[in-house]
Design a binder for these strands. Structure first.
Lengths: 251, 251
DNA sequence: CAGTGGTCTAGACCACGGC
DNA sequence: CCGTGGTCTAGACCACTGG
């Protein structure tokens, strides 16, 4: 059960936009109107509307109203923090995960630095390839702090680490810093991916944090070039850059 | 002059975090404390804090407080909607833009579709390469609606289109949908980029909209593989996927 | 001018963390 | 238990759009 009114309203409006009950380029009812309709205060409506704007459903225009954006045309932005299993199932295609390596090891210097380990903590290393429609197109190399994840099995790695973290261990994955670059293929790429002759892969480096801000996992996702796609909805910062100008130049 | 209290507070706190006056992994003063200190209501503080959380400066933990994140380690996320000029100048390197083509043309069928043109409107086509440290590493191909941008010169294209749109034409760029993929190089890439032998480029397709939600520009940015880097700060969606489950499966 | 969204307030109650 | 952040309210004033 969801208790938060603004989340319910967000979901309701998002559904109505996606289903076309609020057509693209039309105006949403005004905030006052929505507040009356849902029986909540205007600030609660505004919270839901701001989330919709953030996620690319609407564009708010002062003095005018909230314009419904063409979600279909936007082709469903899938950035954010989503597991391969969630993505694959959303696509409706056949998927499989193959586990090549699952070991507990002492982190080397580089890995201690990346995972911010100071003591003698061990680290899980997991190497998996992701198969979609019969082709191994992604190679995932995970390093996970043992202090947060005491046990790990092949079965878990074949299903979904995030699902295990969240549902079984009660961990709450909260945010990640990700970096996308392109690198030359390694021996591991050649061994565990169906490369089709290309000599580069897209590399997504992911630092995953829990809701208490601690780092739990570093992941390197290596994608075959022709199968990589990243879609994002970006808003332009207004005066923030100006506000921070002194920080970059000064001190 | 910025009148918004929450923006001033956001900027002030962001500066204090970046300069280390609020050290990483420490707790910010509580919301009540900050409200008293800045002489504003708690909701105003919360607005600023939520923006800081969104941008990766802090992590809010219920019952505990707001944890300052390690911004230096996060290496300054530069996603969002930023012009090449803004990015280049931030990096401190020598940059130059070379204009190869600047023409007004009738859009073909594909372009009319991409730019959502229904009538007989003409479209600016601009082809430019971006040079950083003496190498042409990005090829930008822009298509711009003439109805929004009546005049365009080589000088403007050599400087910054966004700057011209915003400062001279009074347009407000608001959001974009972007898509990142990898494609094989074209003849134009070979002609206008210093490719160094690679046969693929990273392609960033950008649909840029104004604050009234109208589309103004479609841009294809083609990056040399070894110079492409995209950094993002992503938060995990909570129950939103659950709320929308019915949309994807049913009706 | 009326209607819209943007900002801000002072207060309330709740859920959670840690002592 | 107290202090934290999370949600919500009813109202206020402002800035902007449009007729």
């Amino acid at each position: 059960m969801v208790n938060n009114k603004f989340l319910v309203i967000y979901g309701d409006l998002a559904e109505k936009i996606q289903s076309g009950r609020f057509p693209a380029y039309s105006l949403l009812p005004s905030e006052h109107e929505l507040a009356a309709r849902y029986g909540v205060s205007r600030e609660t409506i505004r919270k839901a509307l701001n989330m919709l704007a953030q996620d690319g459903y609407i564009q708010k225009v002062r003095g005018k109203g909230s314009i419904v954006l063409d979600v279909a045309r936007f082709n469903f932005p899938v950035s954010g923090l989503v597991s391969f299993k969630e993505l694959a199932e959303r696509s409706g295609k056949k998927w499989k995960t193959i586990v090549y390596e699952l070991i507990l090891q002492k982190p080397d210097h580089l890995m201690k630095n990346l995972l911010q380990i100071t003591g003698n903590e061990d680290v899980w290393k997991v190497v998996r390839s992701r198969e979609l429609d019969g082709e191994r197109i992604i190679l995932d190399i995970d390093f996970i702090k043992r202090s947060r994840v005491p046990t790990l099995t092949k079965e878990i790695c074949e299903n979904s680490l995030y699902e295990y973290f969240e549902n079984d261990l009660g961990l709450v994955i909260s945010f990640a810093k990700k970096e996308i670059t392109v690198e030359e293929v390694t021996a591991a790429d050649r061994a565990y991916l169906d490369l089709k002759g290309t000599d580069h892969v897209v590399v997504v480096k992911n630092f995953v944090h829990l809701d208490d801000a601690t780092l739990i996992q570093y992941t390197e996702s290596r994608h075959r070039l022709d199968k990589f796609r990243f879609v994002d909805f970006a808003r332009r910062q207004k005066s923030v850059n100006g506000l921070l100008a002194g920080v970059r130049s000064g001190k």
